[in-house]
């Protein structure tokens, strides 16, 4: 059961990471178009996305089970990306936000901009947790230790 859940959340987090990145990119590009700003000025928003993406790629290729099989980490990642997606969707679709109707872009940029610090905290936090979870003792070592103890 735990294995199925783990696999489910692991795949889900990868999918949601891509969707949340796309949502954020869309809002930021519209925001830049409105303010006539260069994309590079907001590039720092995407650094944590790229960092986390690289770490997840490393997890896959290095087959790091300590991260991949950590159900709690996978659930937290899924929840964090879901939050980012919901905020991006609300900025784009929620008509009840007054500023959504005021600008001709039909996006509430202020609402999304207010969320950016939380977005960074969540993504950098997940990256740090991912790196910390990479440290683990090899199974053979721990088994030997257990045998020794017995």
């Amino acid at each position: 059961m735990k294995k199925i859940l783990n696999g489910l959340f692991y795949v889900l987090q990868l999918l949601l990471l891509i969707i949340s990145f796309a949502g954020t990119l869309y809002v930021i590009l519209q925001m830049n178009a409105r303010l006539e700003k260069n994309f590079m000025e907001n590039f720092n928003v995407f650094i944590p996305f790229l960092l986390l993406f690289v770490l997840l790629i490393i997890n896959i290729f290095a087959n790091q089970k300590s991260v991949k099989d950590n159900l709690f980490y996978n659930i937290t990642s899924t929840l964090s990306f879901t939050t980012i997606i919901i905020v991006a969707l609300r900025a784009i679709l929620d008509n009840n936000l007054i500023l959504h109707n005021v600008t001709t872009y039909q996006i509430d940029f202020t609402y999304f901009a207010n969320f950016l610090p939380f977005l960074k905290i969540l993504l950098y936090g997940l990256s740090i947790a991912n790196v910390l979870l990479m440290f683990h003792l090899k199974e053979s070592t721990s088994k030997t230790n257990t045998k020794d103890l017995k």
Binding site: N70, F72, Y73, I75, T76, L79, S80, T82, T83, F118, I121, L122, G125, L126, I128, A129, L132, L133
Partner: peptide, 12 residues
């Protein structure tokens, strides 16, 4: 790592 994950879980 797990404490940090827990905090992130709470925040999200």
């Amino acid at each position: 790592a797990m404490t940090l994950t827990g905090l992130l879980f709470g925040l999200s």
